[in-house]
Amino acid sequence: MIDRPCSALTAPTNGALSPPGPYSYQNQVTVTCNSGYKLNGVSPVTCKADGTWSNPIPTCTRTSGQCSALSAPTNGARTPPTGANFFGNTVTFTCNAGFVRNGAATVTCQSDGTWTNHVPTCRQIDTCSLNPCRNGGTCIDQDSGFQCACPAGYEGDRCQTERPIFGVGAVVGIAVGCLLGGMLLVGAVTLLILRCRSAKKKEHGIAEAVYEDVRTPGRAVSQRSETGSDVYSYPMAPLPVPPLPSQPSGHYQELRPAVYQSLQRHQQTTPQPQSSTGDRSAFTISHDFST
């Protein structure tokens, strides 16, 4: 009798064959099922001499063990996001940035319907415990890490960079302000000097006019002496001069005290004329009106 080869076998859904073939008389094939599935049938199966198998190829069906549905931890995620809660299924957990996992990274559904581990938790990382902020900066915990509140004069992620309190714009503004203030001050001082000089010239003009009215009906000739005094020459005869009042009054009050006293001294030292036909002469009164 000639042995005949057996027909090729196909692995059951959610299962596998070993060895994969081809098969001949007395070859055995083992059938296994994937995790979460159980074998329904006989394994292994044997190739007979007539080219048939000793038993039908078994099937794989999901086990009756089903675990409770799992949710992702707070501030974390699970992979796959849903399902995978039957016997043999595995779920993986991760935490968001700024958080650390507290517990197992993976859990597996067991045949009795329980998970191998509890769902882990995600605890926020206390990044400020290491005092990352420098130069007196204040550390603020955040979900994605930390933030440093820097004091005046410092900047950067960790307050590590020193910066000037006044920026370039502020320095330029202060310089321009000082320049304008200085220009205004110079202008004010110049205006004050001009006003003082104008008032002084006006005062001198009044005194000269009054003195001229008192002493002579003509106009005095003014010149500057070598000593810096103003010299006034009056071409007039030494006629009797009416006495000056003991106290200035009227337009005499407009004279400076020094001018008034000079007039008094001149009246005392001027000789009286002998006759009305005497020679006409000139006399000079010197007074410094610049004081």
Score class of each variant (00 low, 15 high):
195 R>N: 03
204 H>K: 09
218 G>E: 02
206 I>Q: 04
212 E>K: 03
203 E>Y: 10
209 A>W: 00
218 G>Y: 06
215 R>Y: 06
212 E>R: 00
209 A>G: 01
209 A>N: 07
201 K>N: 09
200 K>R: 12
194 L>C: 00
213 D>Y: 09
225 S>H: 14
201 K>A: 04
204 H>E: 09
224 R>G: 01
219 R>S: 11
219 R>A: 14
199 A>D: 10
194 L>M: 06
211 Y>K: 00
224 R>C: 02
203 E>S: 05
198 S>M: 06
219 R>L: 07
216 T>I: 11
212 E>Q: 12
202 K>A: 11
210 V>Y: 05
219 R>K: 09
216 T>D: 13
197 R>V: 07
213 D>M: 14
211 Y>Q: 10
198 S>A: 07
213 D>T: 09
195 R>I: 05
216 T>G: 09
211 Y>H: 04
212 E>H: 01
220 A>V: 12
221 V>D: 13
201 K>M: 01
194 L>N: 05
194 L>S: 07
226 E>R: 14
224 R>V: 13
219 R>D: 06
200 K>W: 05
216 T>A: 14
216 T>R: 00
206 I>C: 07
200 K>G: 01
210 V>P: 00
203 E>W: 05
205 G>T: 10
205 G>R: 06
226 E>D: 13
218 G>D: 08
211 Y>I: 11
198 S>F: 01
220 A>E: 11
225 S>M: 08
198 S>V: 07
226 E>I: 12
204 H>C: 04
200 K>V: 08
216 T>M: 10
206 I>L: 14
214 V>G: 00
211 Y>M: 03
200 K>Q: 13
198 S>I: 04
217 P>T: 03
198 S>T: 09
219 R>Y: 14
219 R>F: 15
202 K>T: 00
226 E>H: 11
225 S>L: 03
207 A>L: 05
222 S>T: 13
198 S>E: 04
226 E>A: 12
222 S>K: 15
207 A>I: 03
207 A>K: 08
199 A>F: 00
218 G>F: 08
225 S>C: 05
224 R>N: 02
210 V>L: 01
216 T>E: 01
217 P>K: 06
222 S>L: 14
202 K>I: 00
195 R>A: 04
213 D>E: 11
223 Q>C: 08
209 A>S: 09
226 E>N: 10
223 Q>I: 15
217 P>S: 14
208 E>I: 09
202 K>W: 02
204 H>S: 05
220 A>I: 06
224 R>H: 10
198 S>Q: 08
217 P>N: 07
211 Y>S: 10
216 T>S: 13
206 I>Y: 05
199 A>V: 03
214 V>Y: 02
200 K>A: 07
193 I>G: 00
221 V>M: 06
215 R>N: 10
193 I>K: 02
204 H>A: 05
222 S>R: 15
209 A>P: 08
210 V>N: 00
224 R>A: 12
215 R>G: 02
201 K>D: 09
193 I>W: 09
218 G>I: 07
196 C>H: 15
209 A>I: 01
198 S>C: 02
205 G>F: 06
209 A>T: 08
203 E>H: 03
223 Q>G: 10
213 D>F: 04
216 T>L: 07
207 A>H: 10
223 Q>T: 15
225 S>E: 11
215 R>M: 11
222 S>Y: 13
